[in-house]
């Protein structure tokens, strides 16, 4: 169940994502208070935390969907908050974002969902090449048979996989997973965990996985960072993080159903 880290020299490499002193508030509610994080090439970092602690806000800032109040967010060498629309668009070609709700386009078939970013960003591709890309992405998530189905005809697990396939089609360097196993049964959750690891191995992506599911954290994370009260209170391997008597962390372990 526990993931074996492939990348022994990760810390020696240049960080694909570098966050320094990040602050974000919504009105009077301060969500992030001085967050610092580095994610290195080929590394899966799990951000663990209770609901409402700003985990999703963090990755939305990384993807440029939200603007921080202050702080630095450098992704692949670019300071995201300082980018204009055009530069942000270029950067997003290298980022894959898997939403908690999968966010598949309801009015489109699976094929059209997958083609959507490709048709608009790779205009020199022929129809045959686009079809090949779609089939490859569906093959990677094991759902080739759903190609002509609509999102409403898919199960929760299949939707998650198609959501991941849609991000993979652009061959991203960075993957951001927002609660990838939320609302799924344990077997499907394990399948999604395996898929996250397969994506990392196959495409050498640097990933941030937002979750409060310890099974997911243990299975996918090279490193785990616990977000509480707006900042990371503990970072390290899964075992290192939970080798503590800090009640705020041990309670997390206690209330999770994990072997």
């Amino acid at each position: 169940m526990h993931k074996k880290t492939r990348h022994t020299n990760i810390q020696d490499q240049h960080a694909d994502i570098m966050i320094r002193d990040l602050h974000k508030s919504f009105g009077a509610n301060t969500v992030l208070k001085g967050v610092n994080l580095d994610v290195f090439r080929g590394e899966n970092v799990v951000v663990l935390g209770r609901s409402g602690t700003g985990k999703s806000v963090l990755i939305k800032i990384i993807a440029g969907l939200l603007k921080p109040d202050s702080g630095t967010v450098v992704v692949l060498g670019k300071n995201v908050p300082a980018l204009d629309d055009k530069e942000l668009l270029q950067l997003r070609l290298k980022i894959g974002f898997s939403f908690q709700s999968s966010a598949l386009y309801d009015s489109m078939t699976v094929k059209e969902n997958l083609e959507f970013p490709l048709l608009r960003n790779s205009r020199n591709l022929t129809r045959a090449e686009i079809n090949t890309h779609v089939e490859e992405a569906l093959d990677a998530v094991g759902l080739k048979q759903t190609i002509l189905q609509y999102p409403s005809e898919l199960s929760g697990g299949q939707r998650k996989r198609i959501g991941i396939a849609r991000t993979l089609i652009m061959r991203p360097l960075i993957m951001l997973y927002d609660e990838p196993t939320a609302g799924l049964d344990p077997i499907t959750s394990v399948e999604i965990n395996n898929l996250i690891n397969e994506v990392q191995e196959r495409y050498n992506t640097s990933s941030i996985i937002i979750t409060h599911d310890l099974t997911c954290a243990k299975a996918t994370g090279d490193r785990v960072a616990v977000l509480l009260d707006g900042s990371f209170i503990r970072t390290g391997s899964f075992e290192e993080v939970f080798a503590t008597r800090d009640e705020r962390i041990t309670s997390f372990y206690k209330y999770n159903f994990i072997n």
């Binding site: 997003r92 939403f99 908690q100 709700s101 966010a103 598949l104 386009y105 959507f116």
Partner: peptide, 17 residues
């Protein structure tokens, strides 16, 4: 409904307009 189910955000992060 596309906004609240994050479909518009999904279009944005997939580098489309």
């Amino acid at each position: 409904s596309m906004r609240v189910t994050e479909q518009i955000d999904a279009m944005e992060v997939s580098a489309t307009n």
